[in-house]
Design a protein around this nucleic acid. Sequence first.
DNA 1: GCCTGAATGACACGTCGTGCCAAAAAGGCT
DNA 2: AGCCTTTTTGGCACGACGTGTCATTCAGGC
Lengths: 218, 218
Amino acid sequence: MPPIPSSAYAVPVTGRPTLNQRRRESTRLEIAQAAAELFAARGAEATTAEEIATASGISLRTFYRYFSEKEDAVAPLLAAGGERWVRLFTESASDLPVREALERSATESLSPSDATAVEALRWTRDLLRDPRLATVWQRVHADSEERLRAAIADRCPPGTDLLEIRLAAAAATAAIRVALEQWARSGAPATGPGSPRELGARCMRELTAGLDLWSRVN
Amino acid sequence: MPPIPSSAYAVPVTGRPTLNQRRRESTRLEIAQAAAELFAARGAEATTAEEIATASGISLRTFYRYFSEKEDAVAPLLAAGGERWVRLFTESASDLPVREALERSATESLSPSDATAVEALRWTRDLLRDPRLATVWQRVHADSEERLRAAIADRCPPGTDLLEIRLAAAAATAAIRVALEQWARSGAPATGPGSPRELGARCMRELTAGLDLWSRVN
DNA sequence: GCCTGAATGACACGTCGTGCCAAAAAGGCT
DNA sequence: AGCCTTTTTGGCACGACGTGTCATTCAGGC
């Protein structure tokens, strides 16, 4: 008779992640860093998965236990901003209107606080040039949109129309994406005029202001 | 000295596509049809590229001359609606405001006129269930957004802010995408209440009305 | 008929991503 | 300390993927 699989690893009494989970996340980021350097240098096409694995100090088989596809290795860098956005939005004061909370958290998530955030922005600009990585960029935003949708739904009263919530999440995500793509295309620095923070704030404001946008494109 | 590559095939005197181009497009759609049936039946994961080629009556090597990836084979079906939208928008009366033209062309493009359009909608619902095809769905919309952006830019006076144009294209594309995903998730028919046409019209209107949306999600 | 350029098919090849199993590492227990 | 359990890791084999290359076939202009 097989014993009950009572996990040997302690259940996280606190809400903090397990030691193993933290170590796993750490190596995930190491791999992402190595992959980003190789992709930025030679392009994703000319980089083999084995090269990424060797550069990360792991075997090929282990690499595919952390990422399902070779290109996915840079996803943690591209997704960092979106995860921060959703976290800030969830933690923002609950008496704030959704529109306000979305705008503020978006602006703040685009203000690189630590050096890691600045690095992620830099990588974003470099990696977006590679057409093989456009797929990752799109998948990352699809995931972010879904998380944002769930977060918005949590703030809304139970009866709220689900279509409206989906639309709000999609529009807000698109606004930030457009701002980042515009910044990556331009040569503007990560802070100051033309920065993601400024462009993102503009896009969010014009989207939520609604009529302004549509009267301005014509 | 190499001869000037004066194509043996007649230059299209008329704006119509060449005979060869039309035949190529025809086989493209045949492959897409075969791929959609196989993907819907067994899933994209369990379908090999060779099976699609055999079902289409072509060799594996020829298949990869029509599509760069196995999953891409269904892209023509998923992209048909978006291409129709951009075409209708471009052809709409030039004195119409962009907002109006976008709404009308979107609604019309979501009204299945011929049997082919209805088929494409049906396939969309089936194929969206497959996570391996989500990538194609996202790429198709990214392409559609880019075409729409160019079309909007053509209608706007030269000085118009490019960021605004990008934002408008992205928001409109997101609205239609959300409407289609909501329809695919539901069991609603292709016409009538809950149809893509109705949901799309709602999303576009609420987006362009702006403030309504944001006051309703909270 | 001939000639030219495009489309197709067939083969080889490197890479991708996974199933499988054994070895090593890490945490909980007495 | 030692032992035990769970997790992680590495090595190997294998089918599928996607591409370079070349010979063959097809369609149209002369």
